[in-house]
């Protein structure tokens, strides 16, 4: 008989046992808010196609305190998701070289924020202009 008896530790509740895992679960769960937001938008579209009354009803619903609160939370979630995504994006790309030197990760992350900011301003400009 072998004297080996490897002990396998259970994984139950693993995601609560380390702050990193909690943050990970949080990041993943932000997807839920973004998902709900998409569904709400979709409903709005359907309402728009089914006549002015329906559309106005949807608009009113959106003005309720509950809806505003939800949108704030969803915005927060989306921003959090974006931040975490910006942080890992350099891992997904092959290394970039500039004048023979590898571009450092921090620069890549900053570049994403700048890019996001520029896009935001352009969109804002478009809306204000129209």
């Amino acid at each position: 008989m072998s004297t080996r008896k490897p002990y396998v530790r259970p994984m139950t509740g693993w995601w609560l046992k380390n702050p990193v895992y909690i943050r990970y679960i949080l990041r993943e769960s932000t997807a839920v808010f973004v998902g709900i937001y998409a569904v709400i938008l979709l409903i709005g579209l359907i309402r728009l196609s089914s006549g002015e009354a329906a559309w106005n009803g949807w608009i009113d619903a959106m003005r309720s305190p509950g809806a505003i609160l939800f949108h704030c939370v969803a915005l927060g979630a989306a921003v959090y998701h974006a931040i975490t995504w910006f942080a890992v994006a350099p891992k997904v790309m092959p290394p970039l070289y500039f004048k023979g030197e590898k571009v450092p990760v921090e620069k890549l992350v900053t570049a994403q924020y700048i890019l996001a900011g520029v896009i935001y301003l352009v969109l804002l400009g478009l809306i204000l202009w129209s």
Binding site: N18, V20, Y21, Y24, V88, P90, K91, V92, M93, P94
Partner: peptide, 24 residues
């Protein structure tokens, strides 16, 4: 993409980078 592997790596291998580049 939990990403913790790269955080704990004592040799800066950044395995998460290897994994995610290969998703692409």
């Amino acid at each position: 993409l939990v990403g913790y592997c790269s955080e704990v790596c004592p040799k800066d291998v950044d395995p998460a980078a290897a994994i995610n580049r290969n998703k692409v």
